[in-house]
Simulated scan of single mutants.
Amino acid sequence: MGKKRVTSFDVAKRAGVSRSVVSAVLNDTPGIGVGAETREAVLEAIRELNYHVDAGARSMKTGRSMTLAAFGDTRHPLFTRLLEGMQRECEISGYHILLCSPRHKGNAGGRAELLELYHQRKIDGIVTLDHTSYCDEEWAGKIDAAGIPYVSVEGYAEVPGVYSVLADYSGSVETALNYLLREGTPQELAPVYAEVYQGDSADNWAERNRRDAYTSWCRAHGMKPSMVRMEELQGEWTACLQNLADAGRPLPPLLVNWSSAIPDLYRAAHRLGLRIGEDLRVMAADNTIQGHRLSLPSLSCVEIPYVSMGEEAVRCLLKQMNGGNEAALADKIWLPAILRAGESA
């Protein structure tokens, strides 16, 4: 037979107090004053008896599971970084994370299970990592109808009323361009913006914001915008660099939208005898694959702060759950990109 489980009644008996006092100590219940000596007696009894809170009983009493669902592709490095931030904030708040992934192609698969988990009181809120143009009205409607605390990371950027944590993509381009043309660097040529795309990715909200920010920055600085586009993994960098070269003039600084395109660019520059950081100054506007750690010379870039976005997503969920003033809780939280200065620019 298993050993009898220690209960709060046992703790109260050992400490010589009532169970309500034990509960007040465990839950830090507001409005119930517990003296320092009494509190220490309860804590000492907990240690001596090796007492652990019954999570199921607490859930029945509080109506909370102390678990949040994180939905995304577990194979994607960005989801891993988001989880790092969520875990940090959850540890502070005493929450656990339940991982959920799409069960079939597309971001819609698996979301129905999230609704069921909430109704079964197995989770208290949901965070999803979405692509930057995600705005499924049906999903948002179901979340709203069920009253589920919910935050989309990267999704619903242009949809009011849905809580989102978003990266400031416009600001990231401005940060990169300001660094490229910082004081003490050659400024006779306007930076060229290179957009590398996969399929229809060039049409998403983030890419549109980057393009618009680049154009606006150039015009504000009296420079003519110059953009090139190419499909990823199609070996177009050599021709691109040759086209940018002007006899007797240096190559212009190059801002690339994704760091995942940088290895191919470096290889093309090497084939043409161009030295990165000297003959060709390069920067990435999105450090998707941690390119500043993998490239040689080290890549200058701006990084989308997925760890911080995970932290903010949890904070936003907790504010929703704790019944904060919804009018004071912004439905869009914008985070700036992080500058990573390297040797390439």
Rank of each mutant, 00 (worst) to 15 (best):
P263C: 05
H104L: 12
C316E: 03
I126R: 01
V22D: 06
G147L: 03
A194W: 05
G72T: 01
E183P: 03
Y197R: 10
S308G: 12
V34H: 14
L339C: 04
C240T: 11
A247N: 13
A45F: 04
S170Y: 07
V127S: 02
Y156I: 04
E138C: 15
G110E: 07
A285D: 07
R340N: 08
H76N: 15
R208S: 12
P297D: 14
L99R: 13
S59H: 07
Y179E: 10
M283P: 02
Y193G: 00
G222F: 03
C240P: 01
K4E: 09
Q198E: 11
M321C: 05
P252K: 05
G147Q: 07
I92P: 08
P297L: 09
W139S: 02
L177P: 07
I46G: 01
S201I: 03
I97R: 07
D28Y: 14
E188Q: 05
R281I: 06
G277D: 09
L68M: 11
N209R: 14
A220L: 11
K224R: 12
M321D: 02
N50S: 15
F71S: 00
G171R: 05
P102A: 04
P102N: 05
D264I: 00
K105I: 09
Y197H: 10
E44T: 15
V196Y: 10
L98V: 07
C240A: 09
A41N: 07
L241C: 13
H119R: 08
Y118L: 05
